[in-house]
């Protein structure tokens, strides 16, 4: 597993404890009480470390190579998943995957951006950066959910919509805009979760939802801190400063009333315990669906409109 820069001291302590264990085994000396103490201290240190992460360090966790992907969550949270491919206009964008599945007792349409864990996989999934055709596939699946009265779940982990020549030629902006507008019209509950990176319009294009949640260490922003730094500071190396200024953590967004809740991650980040994070996520989503499915379509649409209508801070 990849070790992040700020985790190195912790990793070294853990290595020392392992060495100590080996020595005590081979020499027959019983130092188990010492080892227990050290392990306790290491755990305390770990808790402290993760309680005080800077936004830039949180981003490293959100971008961790081993972070669970959309397909991991689908596998761990749902049963009978059937992928539905293609935008019906010539393309099956692999950066957005969608299908139907059972989440608990509920049939849902589940859609998400997909990242890879290896370079080879990332080339297939384009690093989780959708083309317009991905958003159009998602829209087609939104309509499917609407037609068959199934709740929609979207899981978002994207560095942004792909900035490419073909993407522009096939109207990236329009594809995202149409999703924003059409999601407002849907009659079924929509639950969106930022699971890793939630960058810009590329994330929002799947997130005009009745409930929006973030995993604890995910981030959600108008522009990547690197992009912001190079534009406003004219210096990409100021990304850490920009990450601080942009207020992108789950706690910031909860405080700003942009999201409805935070899904707690295991100590060390979601990649440390797939089962645990999938269970936490599943519970959050199921609770939301159970509440929202009591509402009539008119109320759902009105509440969704008012939810986004309220967002923004200005003087009057």
């Amino acid at each position: 597993m990849a070790i992040l820069e700020f985790e190195k001291p912790l990793f070294e302590i853990q290595q020392k404890i392992e060495e100590l264990k080996k020595i005590s085994e081979s020499s027959g000396m019983d130092v188990s009480d010492k080892i227990d103490l050290f392990e306790q201290q290491a755990l305390e240190y770990k808790k402290e470390l993760y309680a005080k992460l800077t936004p830039a360090q949180r981003i490293q966790i959100a971008r961790h190579a081993d972070r669970p992907t959309f397909l991991d969550y689908v596998k761990l949270m749902t049963t009978d998943f059937i992928e539905l491919h293609g935008d019906r206009e010539g393309t099956d964008d692999r950066a957005i995957i969608g299908g139907i599945a059972k989440l608990g007792n509920e049939s849902v349409v589940i859609i998400g951006t997909q990242k890879g864990k290896t370079t080879k996989e990332n080339l297939v999934y384009n690093f989780g950066m959708p083309q317009p055709q991905g958003y159009r596939k998602a829209l087609r699946l939104f309509y499917h959910a609407n037609k068959f009265n199934m709740p929609i779940v979207t899981l978002i982990d994207t560095p942004g919509a792909y900035p490419g020549m073909k993407a522009e030629e096939t109207a990236q902006g329009t594809a995202i805009a149409e999703n924003l507008r059409e999601m407002a019209k849907l009659n079924v509950p929509i639950i969106a979760v930022i699971t890793g990176e939630g960058c810009s319009g590329g994330a929002l294009g799947l997130a005009v939802a009745d409930r929006v949640y973030m995993l604890e260490h995910s981030y959600y922003t108008v522009i990547s801190p690197e992009g912001c730094a190079s534009i406003l500071w004219r210096d990409a190396s100021k990304a850490d400063v920009a990450a601080e200024a942009l207020k992108i953590t789950s706690e910031d967004l909860l405080k700003l009333e942009i999201i409805d809740g935070i899904v707690k991650e295991p100590l060390g980040g979601a990649h440390c315990d797939y089962e645990l994070i999938a269970n936490n996520l599943k519970k959050t989503i199921t609770d939301a669906i159970n509440e929202l499915k009591n509402y009539a379509p008119d109320k759902l649409r009105n509440d969704r409109y008012n939810k986004f209508r309220r967002m923004g801070v200005f003087c009057q």
């Binding site: 507008r181 019209k185 522009i223 912001c228 986004f308």
Partner: peptide
């Protein structure tokens, strides 16, 4: 594009205005 100095609040204006267009459509 979106105004970076208001970060996520600017992003949400995209959703807000598009939802208003949905009402014009309806």
């Amino acid at each position: 594009g979106a105004r970076m100095q208001e970060s996520i609040l600017s992003l949400m204006q995209m959703a807000k205005t598009s939802c208003a267009v949905a009402r014009l459509n309806e």
